Simulated scan of single mutants.
Amino acid sequence: MTETTDAGAGTATTTAARAHARSQAGAVVDCMPLLPPPPGTLWSETVAGGGYTHLALPAGAHVTLTDRDGDACAHLLLYVTGRPWERLSAADTVKVQWNAYLGTGSQLLSDQGRVLATVTADTSGRHDALAGTSTAARNTARYGDGSPQGPSPAGRELLLLAAAKHGLGPRDLPAAVSLFHGIAVDGDGALHSTGSAGPGTAVTLRLEQAVTLLLANTAHPLDPRPAYRCTPLEVLAVPGEVTGPGDPHWDATPERHRAHLNTAALGVR
C-alpha cells in the first residue's frame, strides 16, 4: 500500500493518520477550549450544542456562563472536590430558600446544607431547578436518538460521560439544575416551558468551595419545539474570593446566612 500524507486522500495508514492529525495543530474552531487559557483566567471554553464539559475549580472562582446565540441550556451538577459524596441537591436548593426559581442571590446548596455556589449575577432569569435533564429514552422517543454521539444527545448520558472522568458513575448523578431555559409552575403543579431570554444573556456563579463542575449543553426536556435545538454555551472561569461576612449575599436571608455559616464551619474552603 502506498503511504500518503495528503489528508484529502484519506488516513488509511498510521503515517498518513499521524500527518493528518499533526496538520491540525493550531487550528481554531467555533466550539473548543482555549489552551492555554487567556491570562488572568482559569478556563475558557465554548461548548457546542449537544456537548459537555467538566472542570475542577478552586473555592472563590467565578464561573460565567453565556448563552451566546439564545438557545443554550446548561444542565449543571456540582460536587465538592475530594468529597464527591457532598453534591448539589436541587431539592434542598429549592426547599431551604423557599423559592422554586433561581436568580441573582440564589444559592446552589449541597445535600448537607452547605453552599456550593452563589449566583452573583443573572441577566437571563430563565432557569429550572425542578424538571431535571433529559434522558436517552425520552430523546429517542421525541427525536429518534438520545445517544451521546447522535444528533440529539440527552443530558443525562453526557453528564455520565463527564462524571466518568472523575471516577463517578450512574449512582452519583443527582437531579441537575438547568440554566437559560425557564420553567414555570402552574396552579395545579404542572410545569411548562417559558423558553429562553435570548442571545447574550449570562449567569455568574461564585464557587463557595473547591468544586468539580459537570455541564451538559442540551435541549431542555420540556422544550415544546418538535425539533432538537441547542446552540453554543460560553464558559469562563476566573479566580476570586468566597463570600464572607459583610457581603450582601451572606446575610440576604436567615436561610442563606445559615448555609454560609455551615460552609465556613467546615474550614476547608
Score class of each variant (00 low, 15 high):
residue 108 L to S: 11
residue 105 G to N: 12
residue 121 A to N: 03
residue 109 L to V: 11
residue 66 T to H: 02
residue 101 Y to T: 10
residue 69 D to S: 04
residue 60 G to I: 07
residue 66 T to A: 03
residue 88 L to I: 13
residue 76 L to A: 01
residue 117 A to F: 11
residue 99 N to Y: 01
residue 99 N to H: 05
residue 87 R to N: 08
residue 66 T to E: 10
residue 121 A to H: 07
residue 112 Q to A: 10
residue 114 R to V: 06
residue 69 D to Y: 04
residue 97 Q to K: 04
residue 55 L to I: 10
residue 68 R to Q: 14
residue 122 D to N: 15
residue 101 Y to C: 04
residue 55 L to F: 11
residue 63 V to E: 00
residue 107 Q to K: 11
residue 114 R to I: 06
residue 90 A to I: 01
residue 124 S to Y: 05
residue 78 L to Q: 08
residue 71 D to S: 08
residue 68 R to V: 15
residue 72 A to S: 12
residue 125 G to W: 03
residue 93 T to K: 10
residue 98 W to T: 00
residue 112 Q to T: 14
residue 119 V to R: 00
residue 108 L to N: 12
residue 70 G to M: 06
residue 65 L to N: 01
residue 87 R to P: 08
residue 111 D to E: 03
residue 70 G to H: 04
residue 89 S to H: 07
residue 90 A to M: 04
residue 80 V to T: 13
residue 95 K to I: 02
residue 115 V to H: 04
residue 67 D to F: 00
residue 56 A to N: 09
residue 57 L to Y: 09
residue 82 G to Q: 05
residue 107 Q to H: 11
residue 61 A to D: 00
residue 110 S to T: 15
residue 96 V to S: 01
residue 93 T to D: 06
residue 107 Q to V: 08
residue 97 Q to G: 07
residue 108 L to Y: 08
residue 61 A to K: 05
residue 115 V to P: 03
residue 124 S to D: 13
residue 107 Q to T: 09
residue 115 V to C: 12
residue 123 T to S: 15
residue 95 K to H: 04
residue 79 Y to T: 05
residue 114 R to D: 03
residue 114 R to T: 15
residue 105 G to V: 11
residue 103 G to S: 12
residue 85 W to M: 02
residue 77 L to D: 03
residue 70 G to S: 07
residue 80 V to H: 12
residue 81 T to N: 05
residue 92 D to Q: 14
residue 87 R to K: 14
residue 95 K to T: 09
residue 90 A to T: 05
residue 80 V to S: 08
residue 105 G to S: 14
residue 95 K to R: 15
residue 90 A to L: 03
residue 81 T to L: 03
residue 97 Q to I: 11
residue 80 V to L: 13
residue 70 G to W: 04
residue 80 V to P: 06
residue 64 T to F: 09
residue 56 A to Q: 09
residue 125 G to T: 04
residue 88 L to P: 05
residue 110 S to Y: 07
residue 83 R to P: 01
residue 106 S to W: 07
residue 111 D to P: 06
residue 93 T to H: 07
residue 70 G to I: 06
residue 84 P to H: 13
residue 124 S to T: 05
residue 77 L to F: 12
residue 86 E to C: 12
residue 66 T to R: 15
residue 65 L to P: 00
residue 78 L to N: 11
residue 119 V to N: 05
residue 66 T to S: 11
residue 99 N to G: 10
residue 76 L to E: 00
residue 82 G to E: 00
